[in-house]
């Protein structure tokens, strides 16, 4: 038996919004640690990893590890039936083929129960190595979203150059070129507005904007985004979900042939 309850459906709705354009099907792994999901996009260029920790739930019961194979589009559609303020319970039997989603209004006057058919999915899990990164940039998530969107008007790729004190995002295309320079904040009252740039060694890498734009669908989950970059390895774009977990995206770089 698996059963968990979150005080607000909003966070799970936003999580589904952050995933459904990138992946069509996925497996939620349920264990005593919480819910987690890992999946590559269909082109195998990027990977998304989600962790929702037990401690962040109102209640969490998992008698036995289970894997819930879901169609992301279906799950997102059902989640949309919840109001943001509803509390939400997810429930599944150990060998069941259904996931129950129960939404209760804050005043307790309305309870909606949906049952979603589960899928038997065999999705390859990749080992994500723990590593130190050459550079880590933290910035307002809305600013990063804006940069990715704006540079998409110019080209298909963004070149990210990180040096001490700042970062350049640049794009080239048939119509012209663009460069956006973001400087590290010198003095910030509100942590959410801060830009911090940690540099062990300067890096310069190129990434497909198409995927970065998919990743920025997670913007409503967190005021800040962190970008971890090292030469010739996937970029990590991470959104922390307050008190609950994170959504992390990994994007393979474009490199010279």
């Amino acid at each position: 038996m698996f059963e968990c309850r979150l005080p607000k459906a909003e966070v799970l709705k936003k999580t589904m919004d952050a995933l459904k354009d990138l992946i069509k099907e996925a497996v939620w792994d349920v264990s005593a640690q919480g819910l987690s999901l890992q999946s590559m996009d269909s082109s195998h260029v990027s990977l998304v990893q989600v962790t929702l920790r037990t401690e962040g739930f109102d209640t969490f019961r998992c008698d036995k590890n289970i894997a819930l194979g879901v169609n992301m589009d279906t799950m997102q559609k059902l989640m949309k039936c919840a109001s943001n303020d509803d509390n939400i319970t997810l429930k599944s039997e150990d060998n069941g083929d259904l996931l129950s989603l129960i939404f209760e209004s804050p005043n307790g006057e309305k309870t909606s129960e949906y049952e979603m058919k589960l899928m038997d999915l065999d999705i390859e899990q990749l080992g994500i190595p723990d590593q130190e990164y050459s550079c880590t940039i933290k910035m307002p998530s809305g600013e990063f979203q804006r940069i990715c969107r704006d540079l998409s008007n110019i080209g298909e790729s963004v070149n990210i150059t990180v040096v001490k004190g700042g970062v350049d995002f640049s794009a080239k295309g048939d119509i012209g070129n663009a460069k956006i320079h973001v400087t590290e904040s010198s003095n910030v009252d509100n942590e959410k507005d801060a830009v911090t740039v940690e540099v062990n060694e300067p890096v310069n890498l190129t990434f497909a904007l198409r995927y970065l734009n998919f990743f920025t669908k997670a913007t409503p989950l967190s005021g800040q985004v962190s970008l971890s970059i090292s030469p010739d390895v996937p970029l990590v774009v991470a959104y922390e979900i307050e008190d609950l977990g994170h959504v992390k995206y990994f994007l393979a770089p474009k490199i010279e042939n």
Partner: peptide, 14 residues
């Protein structure tokens, strides 16, 4: 020109 690499060339199956 630069070519897109695959995520599975960096991360191996568990």
């Amino acid at each position: 020109s630069k070519q897109q690499t695959s995520i599975s060339s960096f991360f191996k199956p568990k």
